[in-house]
Design a protein around this nucleic acid. Structure first.
Length: 296
DNA sequence: AGTCAGGCAACGC
DNA sequence: GCGTTGCCTGAC
């Protein structure tokens, strides 16, 4: 079972809430609900409603947004939170690369203008999306929590317990059968193989992250059993800052078919999307995806 | 009760 | 290349 290795009292936390610098507009709620992060839990601290969760293997962070838009967190997490939620992204410059005169994208952006693409730790992003195959958001979330509780490091925080995502070695040691029992089914095999490959050094995630060519990074990830186009693109977009990566799932297929009249699929659809949406196609994808899921 | 989900691999052509 | 099928599980 996990061992608790840190504890921060609520009082201690309250004293240290500070504002996180943010470049432009941000919506914490939209960002957390846009299907890229699955483990943040609602938490009220000192009368302020926000969210708590682990960023990588650091002790839990508390994040909240005041009515005036200010993002606040513990002093110790100021930089970590800003970086994790992409508060330094220059949205104006990103949006300027989007196609002019695209009313669908414009509507999606108007729906969730403060949505940002987070910078997740690569392993936890990859692993989470391996477990997401053919699953609904609520279930992805539940699997993430189960894996964290069983194999992650526990941290006491504000009277509750939060868990870091388990390291590759922890999941490798758990074994395939045990992982399957975390409601994973056939995904247990993929997760275990990925954890083993990374824990043993057979696959170097850092090298893939640093790979200059998106194509080669994508191929590197796709060597893993259970990682195809969609999961590779999600990992590159949500954890490696590769905003040109454009994951196409059933929701994006639906949007592109119904609003853009695209009837092609697979690689052809992929090529069209990158050409149409430009160098930050993945960022555009995130607005469209969130918009589609909430309104279509 | 059957169908369907935020995919992928293996196989057939 | 392109289309089809099986796969675990939970929600409806």
């Amino acid at each position: 079972m996990s061992k608790t290795i840190s504890a921060v009292s609520a009082a201690e936390a309250n004293d240290a809430l500070v504002v996180v610098p943010c470049e432009g507009i941000f919506s914490l709620r939209d960002t957390l609900r846009s299907g890229q992060l699955f483990h943040w839990e609602e938490l009220s601290l000192n009368g302020l409603d926000g969210f708590a969760g682990c960023i990588g293997d650091a002790p839990p962070s508390f994040v909240a947004q005041r009515e005036n838009g200010e993002v606040v967190t513990l002093a110790r997490d100021r930089e970590r939170v800003g970086r994790y939620f992409g508060l330094d992204h220059r949205l104006g410059e990103i949006h300027a690369t989007f196609p002019a005169g695209d009313p669908v994208l414009a509507a999606a952006m108007a729906y969730c203008p403060g949505l940002r693409i987070a910078r997740q730790p690569v392993w936890e992003c990859l692993a989470t999306f391996i477990t997401s195959s053919l699953k609904q958001v609520a279930h992805i979330r539940s699997i993430s929590m189960t894996l964290r509780r069983r194999y992650g490091t526990a941290h006491a925080f504000s009277g509750r317990t939060f868990y870091a995502y388990p390291e590759p070695a922890a999941l490798a040691a758990a074994g395939e059968d045990e992982l399957r029992q975390c409601s994973l089914g056939y995904r247990g095999k993929s997760l275990h193989l990925a954890a083993t490959a990374i824990a043993s050094g057979g696959l170097d995630l850092r090298a893939i992250e640093d790979e200059s060519s998106l194509e080669r990074a994508r191929e590197g990830l796709m060597q893993l059993h259970g990682v195809g186009e969609k999961i590779a693109h999600c990992t590159l977009l949500f954890s490696a800052g590769r905003w040109e990566a454009f994951p196409i799932d059933v929701w994006m297929e639906r949007v592109l078919r119904e609003h853009y009249r695209k009837r092609v699929k697979g690689a052809k659809l992929q090529r069209w999307a990158v050409k149409h949406f430009g160098p930050n196609a993945g960022y555009a994808q995130q607005y469209l995806f969130h918009f589609a899921r909430k309104t279509l």
